[in-house]
């Protein structure tokens, strides 16, 4: 939310872009989560915001990741409609707890990192 006011013109450009085009994200899986996706750590994905939506939230991204990326044991990654407690999420290297967790709005070329704290010690 706050991001839009701050970024002004440029964000509108992004918005228009995202209306017609796909949004591009770079997802990193770390801390053992890559094991749930055939050990692939970096995923470049293109996503289309849902019908009528002007932007994409983490909530959407998560459900997309769950259906499209996670190959096994989704319960290690998700619990309910959020990540399993113990999985850290960073959007552009910033703790998602600062940006509203599931309500965090994503923009084109955002980098999202998921780190599991549950593996190993």
């Amino acid at each position: 939310m706050t991001s839009f006011r701050l970024v002004g013109v440029i964000s509108i450009v992004t918005l228009i872009r995202s209306f017609k085009m796909l949004m591009f994200f770079c997802l990193f899986l770390r801390g053992g989560l890559e094991l749930l996706c055939d050990s692939v750590k970096i995923h470049n994905v293109d996503l289309e915001p849902e019908n009528g939506e002007k932007q994409l939230t983490m909530k959407h991204l998560l459900s997309w990741v769950r259906t499209n990326l996670i190959k096994e044991r989704p319960e290690m990654f998700m619990k309910g409609d959020s990540v399993r407690p113990g999985v850290l999420v960073l959007v552009n290297d910033c703790d998602w707890e600062l940006s509203g967790q599931l309500d965090t709005t994503l923009e084109d070329k955002d980098v999202v990192v998921f780190i599991s704290t549950l593996h190993g010690g």
Partner: peptide, 27 residues
């Protein structure tokens, strides 16, 4: 576009300790 995207990134909230840099995590 690359540079634009980086510039477009929200500044977000500031660190409560130094009050200068963008906060990166919630303790």
């Amino acid at each position: 576009m690359e540079g634009e995207a980086a510039a477009a990134k929200p500044k977000g909230r500031l660190c409560v300790i130094c009050n200068q840099k963008r906060a990166a995590l919630k303790r």
